[in-house]
Design a protein around this nucleic acid. Structure first.
Lengths: 348, 348
DNA sequence: TCTCGAATTTGGAACGTTCCAATTCATAGA
DNA sequence: TCTATGAATTGGAACGTTCCAAATTCGAGA
């Protein structure tokens, strides 16, 4: 009687088994699974009952073979341990989910080889669309191959020189410029930039905004105050030492992102210094932890969730046939907290 | 001459096309793709060249149809926005990656319906194994169905009553007990517990450890000092008010996890209070942000990456045929920082 | 040159679905 | 009762791979 919960790895239950069990043809079962209005309600119920009873699982591989229309979208993230990207991913997921797509996330940990494997695996699995935050060193060609397969692709956070891809990015240049202007207004003359590599476009933009502000204020650009490094805690931690142990120590720094700033916070602490009093520190991203650091971090606010949602909407638009690339740049905002030494927490 | 970079969505390139192009049979192409030692080097090269030239992508769906052996493993996470789970995921990924598996992550945001969809999608795609941090309210049966399919499953962080699944968890009970003992030793008598729901096993364990310590010290258990709620910032923020606005306010709290503690930190701040001076606060997990909060958070240290790695190794073991379930409980450690009011940062 | 075994290669039958054209079934109107 | 029409259902041919048994090629010894 109770055939359910068939245990063990017995041979896979197929549509044909269902058909036999329900006394219909495999075609009918297929129609039921596609919620076709063609089947009579009564028949549908019989079939559904059999499916339930035999514990059938749909084989999407086989289905895609005949008619490729997948409902999974890929999200390839370069650093999931960075809360910023986690927040970004959550924004994307929300949109995909309500649109009926299942997002699968893969983490590349900033490793192009791993990224290549992940992309390969995703394309082998016939994804409907892709959002990617490219790992450092990604070349347009690495992604091109997927695009050639006519998979809709949107770049998030990092654009790629060359071919026109759709992308969403915060206004890195403007954000960095504003942050730097703020530090200058507070009287700082030797301001450092921590983190990122000059071969990353995002770093170029942020560091570019930084330099633009210095130039506009008539301050010199001192190359050894620009400390390159991976965008992680470690980097910020080390950078502090570099700019403090020189003849003319820096008095402030703009960080490539909040995570670097967190590292810098540790670096200062380790030397017995306090951000905001002994050194002005500004981050970028405004991840949710930023307001809880010690001291709270002044940073460039990015509307992360909205950015993720925008990227997801772009992919959906492309999936639905509108393939024009769109480069979206979202506005940003400086949030002044204690780490830069400006008292008060007003938001400008 | 240059057939590469074939643009446009033209019909899919298949093994048969490669075979024709290279002047061999499809079987040979198949052998090449499986890196079989049977094919002559020379032939292999011809085939590889054709693959390269025509821009072929392997169709894993079709392959799985004939012989199911997938190289993707699923990781189903209940809250990716919680840095703890992000760190956990990173640990798992590392192991899978070096073992040649591609991990795909899905986020359920603690929503059982979404979890069901994700699990369904993953099983439809023929995963080789699965690690899941079950969403609140998950019933063994929800996962059972997958297990019936003989997919190796490991539960992470949250066990499930009933059937014997493999699992990895930190020693929640002991950790919570130690943390509570520490607060008691500092002289606190009215200690609250923030966050989690009593229908979550992890909460039972942590809250159980908390209560055990109270009882051992001869302190009463006051039900309205146990504030249930989702394990997020919001919850911690609100909980502070609840335990402070009563006739006999609590003077300390153990939080279900660090994220709840971060919220509690905000809650205190909002009332002009400082953790460590006006109220003792302890978290659980020791996410990497915990040392940077204001003040730094005393918390129960969990070796997150190791836990993730352990889970991944268990899945691999099961994939390789050893299906005995194993329940692994990892040791934990109290890390004393400033938020609990014990001066100094010694680690006990 | 012939023979034999080992080394390579190959055609065709699966695998579990979807799609199409065609069939069967019911119902209403004549 | 018969027919026409629309509603439901159905068989078989794909889809792109792997596996198997069988076929072919190669090289060395007789």
């Amino acid at each position: 009687m109770n055939t359910r919960e068939t245990p063990g790895p017995g041979p896979r239950v197929t549509m044909i088994d269902i058909a036999r069990h329900a006394g219909v043809s495999k075609s009918t079962v297929s129609l039921v699974l596609q919620a076709s209005p063609l089947v009579k309600a009564e028949t549908r119920e019989k079939v559904v009952a059999s499916i339930e009873q035999l514990g059938y699982v749909y084989n999407r591989g086989a289905a895609n073979l005949r008619s490729a229309r997948s409902n999974i979208v890929g999200m390839v993230i370069n650093d999931l341990a960075n809360p910023f990207f986690a927040e970004l991913a959550v924004g994307m997921e929300h949109v995909f989910h309500t649109a009926g797509y299942i997002p699968f996330i893969a983490n590349t940990t900033e490793n192009p080889k791993r990224q290549a494997e992940v992309l390969r695996s995703m394309s082998e699995h016939d994804i409907a669309g892709l959002i990617i935050c490219p790992a450092r060193g990604t070349k347009p060609a690495d992604i091109e191959s997927l695009a050639g397969l006519s998979v809709p692709i949107v770049l998030a956070m990092r654009r790629l020189a060359g071919r026109k891809f759709s992308s969403v990015t915060p206004d890195n240049l403007r954000g960095a410029r504003r942050a730097t202007e703020h530090l200058i207004a507070l009287g700082h003359k030797r301001i450092a930039f921590f983190g990122g590599y000059s071969d990353m476009i995002a770093q170029n933009d942020r560091c570019g905004g930084f330099q633009a502000a210095l130039i506009a204020a008539g301050l010199p650009i001192e190359p050894d105050l620009i400390i390159e490094g991976p965008p992680n805690r470690e980097c910020g931690l080390n950078a502090v030492g570099r700019v403090l142990d020189r003849a003319e120590p820096a008095t402030a720094a703009l960080c490539f992102n909040d995570v670097v700033a967190f590292g810098a916070l540790s670096g200062l602490e380790r030397r017995g210094l306090t951000a905001g009093r002994d050194f002005a520190l500004v981050g970028f991203d405004d991840v949710s932890e930023a307001r809880h650091t010690n001291p709270p971090l002044t940073t460039v606010h990015v509307d992360t969730a909205a950015l993720g949602e925008r990227a997801a909407h772009q992919v959906l638009r492309m999936i639905h046939g509108d393939t024009r690339p769109e480069e979206f740049v979202s506005d940003v905002d400086l949030v002044v907290r204690a780490s830069c030494g400006a008292e008060g927490g007003r938001r400008q």
